[in-house]
Amino acid sequence: MTNVSNPVLAVRGLSKSFGGVHAVADVNFFLDAGELLALIGPNGAGKTTCFNMLNGQLPPDAGSVKLQGRELVGMTPRQVWRLGVGRTFQITATFASMTVRENVQMALISHHKRIRALWRRTGDHYADEALALLDRVGMAEQAERACGVLAYGDLKRVELAVALANEPQLLLMDEPTAGMAPQERIDLMALTAGIVRERSISVLFTEHDMDVVFAHSDRVMVLNRGELVAEGSPAAVRADPLVQEIYLGAGSTFGSDEQPAATTTADAAAGGTHA
């Protein structure tokens, strides 16, 4: 699966140092259409730095990031977004003083470059499209509620609908299930997996919840001290002794295959220490 002739995303030689410390060193990988690729590793391994370079937030020191053959390095996050790369965040970021529908409408309005319209009411712009997206993530019934009063799990669904508004080819999801209850996580990832397969969207996600990673990813990459140290199917990565040593440990604190119940909680507010 790794070796495809025409990958959606091709990353070559990506590197970044901060003050002489290699945060990300010579990272190479491909991402195929409709594939869910998990990026795991200890805190400070460089996952966030990697993400920030992929969507243009941070300029890499070296390397290239190609989206369907088009170089993204040197673009701003907004340009990258316009090319069809969506990003979701660890901690939900929605417009609390707007309704669920308006949140999605804002993304659609931006997608259609109408943000400076001065006269027609916001609520009249792309209302049907917004409702259709909300329907897909199961939030249509709550479309008129304020985001500020929603439950956390529902906010995550709203964010998914927002991320779909610009018809992305690639979604970068930073710990998509952080801060959620175990069953909600599984539901959200099942929903995400369903949508990305039907629309053939590729997903790169980081995750601390190993149950989510092993249940929903097609492939897993392990980052340690800025370097890719393992890559392969979930089962292969899980059995890798090096990965066990640096990250997974003896497995006493996350669920085994038979018992996917309670799990390690995810990195909701890891403090600002990512390298």
């Binding site: 805190n43 640096i246 997974l248 440990g249």
Partner: peptide, 16 residues
């Protein structure tokens, strides 16, 4: 309050 939150499994073991 949630001492294991956000930590890698191997660190959680140490914390315990």
């Amino acid at each position: 309050d949630e001492p294991s939150e956000g930590l890698a499994p191997v660190i959680v073991e140490q914390m315990a």
